[in-house]
């Protein structure tokens, strides 16, 4: 057993972190929230160059995957920088199409996903809204044992995270029907849940880091507020929750890679832990930044607002807890 990321995986994460830190990501998030997709799509293309989306696509469709652990490592970094767009949905759609066995759809979409040419939505699990359908080249909608592909959607409805743009998918062409759809959708749901957990983990880490930096320099009563135990203990709890969520995310990715029977509960456990840790980190960030944390202007707000939707997307904590015990 060597339950540690390899040097290569760490290096990949560092590369992504560096690239996203130098790419004006916060401005792209704000533009995305305003419905201007150009900076976000440019960022998407740069991510594709690093090979992120190819990790979700099998080799026979011009990808290098599926590699769930490497994907999870990458999505921690995407979460850390609050990158906008249907990142999870595109990777999950790739998992869906690769598993479905409909060669036509796979040939049409998987190479485009791998290269970053296609931004794809996925609406399943009974979700009424698709994420960022207005920016997507196609949205796959799974209802029961039927999957449709649609390019149209209802009006964009503002969400509590403005960078997550929600709308109802409309109409569409039926692609496939039957048990293969249900099975592929379950696999795609696991993939989506895992990558949402990974994003939440990265987002939580960034929220904690920003807040630690802030309480070291913010002075009240003539000392840094980070020297007060009430502040320290809250941040220590934040770190604790993230540190214990991380191995769950990695183990869940390993289980998905093996297509193990325990993958469902393992992924659900990771989602609960990472989602709750991230949301707690957001609450701590908000509280310890004081009124500053409650304002839109600092880039901190881009992260604080994303924590709760990530906690709930692709399986609320209650749904995931039930899944853990369903075995």
């Amino acid at each position: 057993m060597r339950f540690l990321l390899t040097d290569e995986q760490r290096e990949f994460a560092r590369t992504l972190d560096g690239m996203l830190g130098a790419s004006g990501t916060p401005a792209a998030v704000r533009a995305w929230a305003a419905g201007e997709h150009k900076p976000g799509r440019d960022l998407w293309a740069r991510l594709a160059e690093t090979g992120v989306f190819a990790l979700a696509v099998p080799e026979e469709y011009a990808g290098v995957g599926p590699l769930p652990l490497e994907l999870a490592v990458a999505y921690v970094e995407l979460g850390r920088h609050a990158v906008p767009g249907p990142l999870v949905e595109t990777a999950a759609a790739a998992a869906f199409l690769a598993r479905l066995g409909d060669t036509g759809a796979a040939v049409a979409w998987l190479p485009r996903i791998a290269s970053g040419d296609a931004v794809v939505g996925l609406c399943a699990d009974g979700a009424p809204f698709a994420l960022d359908a207005d920016a997507a080249d196609a949205v796959f909608v799974v209802r029961g044992d039927t999957v449709c592909r649609t390019e149209t959607h209802g009006p964009v409805q503002p969400s509590l995270d403005p960078a997550r743009r929600l709308s109802r998918p409309l109409g569409g062409t039926v692609l496939a029907r039957g048990p293969a759809v249900t099975a592929a959708a379950a696999h795609a749901g696991d993939t989506a849940r895992l990558l949402t957990a990974a994003q939440a983990l990265g987002l939580g880490r960034a929220l904690l880091d920003e807040t630690v930096a802030y309480v070291k320099q913010r002075t009240q009563f003539a000392v840094p507020i980070g020297s007060f135990q009430a502040v320290k203990h809250r941040l220590a709890d934040g770190l604790l929750a993230l540190e214990f969520a991380q191995p769950l995310v990695h183990a869940a990715a390993l289980a998905l890679a093996r297509d193990a029977a325990c993958a469902g509960p393992e992924i659900a456990a990771a989602k609960v832990a990472a989602g709750e840790a991230c949301y707690a980190a957001a609450r701590t960030a908000l509280q310890l930044h004081g009124a500053l944390g409650y304002t839109d202007e600092p880039d901190l707000s881009l992260r604080i607002r994303k924590a709760r939707p990530l906690r709930d997307a692709w399986g609320t904590p209650a749904e995931c807890r039930a899944r853990v015990l369903a075995g």
Binding site: L4, A245, P247, A273, A322, V324
Partner: peptide, 28 residues
């Protein structure tokens, strides 16, 4: 109550995996 049982299961698994990670780090 179900959620609390699930949290105990998740917590125990997290502690086990965290420890496997530490054991791997020490072995390395």
């Amino acid at each position: 109550l179900r959620d609390r049982v699930a949290d105990a299961v998740i917590g125990a698994r997290a502690y086990q995996l965290f420890t496997y990670g530490n054991a791997s780090r020490i072995a390395a």
